[in-house]
Design a binder for these strands. Structure first.
Length: 477
DNA sequence: ATGTGC
């Protein structure tokens, strides 16, 4: 991107000035000069378009891992005031509603895994349903699914998938408020009846990792992680249900925008006022999809525990945290000296509440919310903590991953899946997948350097680095 | 992201 159009506010903050004639408010990109300059021009165009939407409060923002998405960039954050005509947008949440990462900490050491790595990868690959259209071991009725959509991970725990103690460490304690299954189409529900407890495809994965380096000893202790310790990260979302809701509401919100005379800078930014029938219906459906994703990750965490217990009967496998990456949440934030209720869209961005936030588990409250930056296949990941400055910087938001640097098609031309899997194997990283095409699309080289993203996230004041993770086993969707 | 794509 041509950064000469941007003002350098500080070394990690780049501003596209408001333009009254174009009806555009400020757009802001966070990241080092190198990361922002390497982003596609489309990121600037898209975040500039978001800055034209009604009821925006503060700048439209892009996180350091941002890249081109549908309407909003992935890595986009924007807050809207419902009392000022603020909108809600399906493109601002993303198709995979509440896609996110469940992070489990174990009391195992890297050496324990190395002794059984191949067999453990067999067990995970056998028991974790993964891949396009891959069904799970559950078949629900519509009535049962409605309970999933209302109660989220709580439903899963009640059904015997996991432990009550997991719920404290899930965003919203495992159940998103405002879910309304009656806003979800029969088609969206039917697509999900056989897909609870499945990983999906694309960038989704389950990874067994070890803690390579601790940078913040106090936060690491609060999070219960230490160097050499093994953790498991499960990255997945709301599967067919969330995708169908996104598809359904793009149409419904576009009609609402036309009816209400909202000028859309891009038709992919279909949206409706938060206080409108279509806006409220999308909010109800989106939260239902969030509960689907939270239940999905809860079931997968339970399956993972089962596989680990087979090899390590006494191992502790506890939920460190579960963060969503694709959400729109009503939150109170201080703007101009007063608290305001805002609907914060985070698309490919993590909520990152800072120290002292009363909704955080007591164990983490003093250090801030755990934030997981998921790396690309076979590279590193990071655990961070929400920082004091995150609220003022980005309504308490941070990066969610390495972020793509190259399209899937470009990656397919450049890499071969089998070769990548073999190369990573030589580095001691076991990749298990049913799709070599998917593996090529997910080539590490098609992503930004996660080290640079994590560093920039900290420098930009969005979250501070706690511990880096290195992969041992990766089950790819 | 996706019973991947009209």
């Amino acid at each position: 991107m041509d950064i000469s159009r941007l003002a350098e506010v500080d070394s990690c903050t780049w501003s596209l000035a408001a333009d009254a004639r174009e009806g555009r408010r400020e757009a802001r990109l966070y990241g080092t000069r190198e990361l922002v300059a390497a982003m596609d021009d489309k990121v600037l165009e898209q975040i500039g378009n978001v800055a034209k939407l009604p009821g925006l409060v503060g700048p439209a923002m892009a996180m350091p891992d941002a890249h081109w998405g549908y309407g909003f960039p992935i890595g986009g954050v924007a807050a809207f005031d419902p009392e000022q005509g603020g909108i809600i947008s399906a493109g601002g949440v993303g198709f995979d509603i509440s896609c996110g990462i469940r992070c489990l900490r174990t009391d195992l050491a890297k050496g324990d895994i190395l002794q059984v790595a191949r067999k453990l990868s067999d067990g995970l690959f056998r028991d974790i349903p993964a891949g396009v259209g891959e069904g799970g071991n559950l078949r629900l009725t519509v009535q049962e699914l409605d309970r999933v959509l209302e109660h989220g991970a709580r439903w899963a725990v009640q059904e015997g998938f996991g432990e009550e103690a997991d719920l404290e460490f899930i965003e919203d304690h495992g159940c998103a408020k405002g879910a309304d299954p009656t806003c979800v189409s029969p088609l969206a529900k039917s697509r999900q009846l056989g897909e609870m407890g499945t990983l999906g495809s694309g960038n989704h994965y389950l990874e067994v990792q070890w803690v390579d380096r601790v940078l913040d000893a106090e936060a690491a202790e609060a999070f219960g992680v230490a160097e050499g310790q093994v953790v498991v990260s499960i990255h997945c979302g709301s599967r067919g249900l969330g995708h169908q809701i996104g598809t359904d509401f793009l149409v419904s919100l576009a009609k609402a925008a036309t009816r209400l005379g909202i000028a859309l800078p891009d038709r992919e930014l279909a949206c409706a006022p938060i206080r409108s029938p279509e806006g409220e219906q999308y909010f109800g459906a989106m939260n239902a999809a969030t509960n689907c994703a939270l239940a999905n990750r809860q079931i997968l965490a339970h399956i993972t525990r089962g596989v680990f217990r087979h090899f390590f009967p006494k191992a502790r496998v506890e939920t460190l945290f579960d963060v969503s990456h694709n959400t729109c949440k009503p939150e109170e934030h201080e703007v101009g000296g007063r608290k305001r209720l805002l609907y914060v869209h985070r698309k490919g961005a993590t909520r990152a509440f800072g120290p002292g936030n009363p909704t955080l588990p007591a164990r983490y409250r003093a250090v801030g919310q755990p934030v997981v930056i998921g790396g690309s296949m076979g590279t590193g990941s990071w655990i961070l903590a929400g920082s004091e400055t995150s609220e003022a910087r980005a309504y308490s938001s941070a990066s969610h991953g390495a972020g793509r640097a190259m399209s899937r098609n470009a990656a397919l031309k450049r890499w071969q899946g089998r070769q990548l899997v073999d190369q990573l194997g030589e580095q001691g990283i076991i990749i298990r997948t049913r799709s070599m095409r998917g593996a090529a699309e997910e080539a590490p080289g098609a992503y930004k350097d996660v080290e640079l993203v994590a560093e920039a996230t900290e420098k930009a004041g969005l979250a501070r680095r706690v511990a880096s993770l290195r992969p041992l086993i990766c089950v790819k969707g």
